[in-house]
Each structure stands twice: as structure tokens, then as C-alpha cells.
Computed example of a mutant assay.
Amino acid sequence: MIEDKLILDACCGARKMWFDKNNPNAIYGDIRSETHELIDGRTLEIRPDVVLDFTQLPFPDETFRLVAFDPPHIHDLGKSSIMAKTYGILSYHWRDDIREGLKECLRVLKPYGVLVFKWSESSVKLSDVMPLLPQEPVFGHTSGKHGRTIWMTFLKK
């Protein structure tokens, strides 16, 4: 199954950033597998292909050509809030988690593979995340209604 996949989404959540939420080239991973009934009656599903911890990815070195890494980025949420259910909660040990997650994402990339890292400054400023990066991003872009979401792109050498 993994052999034919080119892309890893290391913490897919509800796959909100995907145009094709069942892209045949991707394997979707998350630490959660759960379903929630929202207050407006909709259903929120977190259904990864593989339940995993992004700090210890269960894949061999140099497996994927592209890795998407959009970890939880808010730490002051109630566990029952819609934001927590949708995106997860940043842990108390978030610095170690992000540092190890980025290292793992690069480990499973093939040489010259691409890592796309998304961060939102909702709770933690990018300036606090930058020292955790294992290498300098090639380029990035700020987006979102208030310009607090940052997309960074890395090339594995």
C-alpha cells in the first residue's frame, strides 16, 4: 500500500486543505481517528489511513516525494471545542513535538523531496518556531484573513 504512495500528510485531521480528500497518491496519517457530531448537525470525521504519531513516523527512510506537515498550532483550547476537534491541540511539549515532527518529515522524504510546513500564529508566533527548524526554508508565503498563517517549503538535499 505505501509503496505506491508519493505523498504523506503527517497530520491530516479532517483533510481540510486537500482539494481531493481521497487523493490516490497520498497516504493520510493522524494521531486521532474519531467522528464528531457538530452543533449544526454536520459530521466531522478524522479518518486517517494510518493512525500515527508524527514524532515517530512508521515509514522507512526516503519513502515519499512530498510531505505535508500541518500540526496543531493552538494550545489554549477546550478539548470539546470545535477548533480542538477539527485541528487538534498543541501539546505542553510543543517545541519538542514540532522539532521532532519536522525531523521525521524530512527523514521520510526522498532526496530532493519537498516538505510543505503550515503554521498559524494563533497561539505561537513564527519567531518561536523558527529556531526549531532543522534547515532553512527555500521559500514561504503568509496567508489567511489576518495574515497569521505561514506556508514554508523545504527541499531535502
Rank of each mutant, 00 (worst) to 15 (best):
M1E: 04
I2Y: 05
D4T: 11
I7S: 03
I7D: 02
L8P: 00
L8A: 02
D9K: 00
C11D: 01
C11W: 00
G13Y: 03
R15W: 09
M17H: 14
W18D: 05
F19V: 15
F19C: 14
F19T: 15
F19E: 15
D20T: 11
D20M: 12
K21V: 09
K21A: 12
N23T: 05
N25E: 13
I27T: 02
Y28D: 03
Y28E: 03
G29H: 01
I31H: 08
I31R: 09
S33R: 15
S33A: 13
E34K: 15
E37S: 14
D40C: 06
T43N: 03
L44K: 05
E45Q: 13
E45Y: 10
I46R: 01
I46F: 05
R47A: 04
P48D: 00
D49A: 01
D49T: 01
D53N: 13
P60L: 07
E62I: 10
R65F: 03
R65Q: 08
L66M: 07
L66T: 05
F69Y: 11
P72L: 03
I74T: 11
H75F: 14
H75P: 02
D76H: 06
L77R: 04
S80L: 11
A84W: 08
A84I: 12
T86F: 04
T86H: 06
Y87P: 07
G88L: 02
I89R: 02
L90E: 00
S91D: 02
H93S: 13
H93V: 08
R95E: 11
L102S: 02
L106S: 04
L106V: 06
V108K: 03
V108T: 03
K110R: 15
P111L: 09
V114E: 10
V114Q: 10
K118M: 14
W119N: 08
S120Y: 08
S120N: 11
E121H: 09
S122A: 15
S123N: 15
V129H: 08
M130Y: 13
Q135A: 10
E136A: 13
E136V: 12
V138F: 07
F139Q: 04
G140H: 03
G140L: 05
G140W: 05
H141V: 11
H141Y: 14
S143A: 14
H146E: 04
G147L: 07
R148Y: 12
T149C: 11
T149S: 13
I150C: 07
W151S: 03
M152D: 00
L155V: 09
K156Y: 03
K156C: 02
